[in-house]
Amino acid sequence: MKTEINEELIEHVSKVARLDLTEKEKQKFSEELKEIVAAFSKLDEVDTTKTEISLQPVELKNVLREDIPEKCLTQEEALSLTKHKKDGYFKGPKAI
C-alpha cells in the first residue's frame, strides 16, 4: 500500500498514541517513519491471498485452571509502590 507519511498524519498518530511530541520530534519522526514505512511496504510483493494469520509462532490451546482462589498480594502490598492512594484504593486522575 502506498501511504503518504506527513506531519499531519504523524500528529494524528501521536494523539491516538497519547504522546506529546515537540515540533522537532514531529519533523524527525515524519522523516524517519517515511523511510521505514516505504521499506516495509516491500511486504506487498508477497502473495498472501490464501494465507491465514499467525498470532503465535507455535500452536497453542486454551489453557484453563480450576477456579480455586490462591494466595495473592495483600492490599497493603499492592498499594506499596505508589504515592497515589486513598483509603485502601489506588487514586487516579479524573476521567471525565
Binding site: M1, V13, V16, A17, F29, L33, F40, T48, T51, E52
Partner: peptide
C-alpha cells in the same frame, strides 16, 4: 508511533494483518 500506525483503522490490513500473514 510505528506500532500505533500499523494497527490504526485504515492501515491495519495493509500493515499489521499483512505482517501476520507473511509470518505464516
Amino acid at each position: 508511533m510505528l506500532g500505533t500506525f500499523a494497527r490504526m483503522s485504515g492501515y491495519r490490513d495493509a500493515y499489521y494483518i499483512k505482517a501476520l500473514k507473511v509470518r505464516t
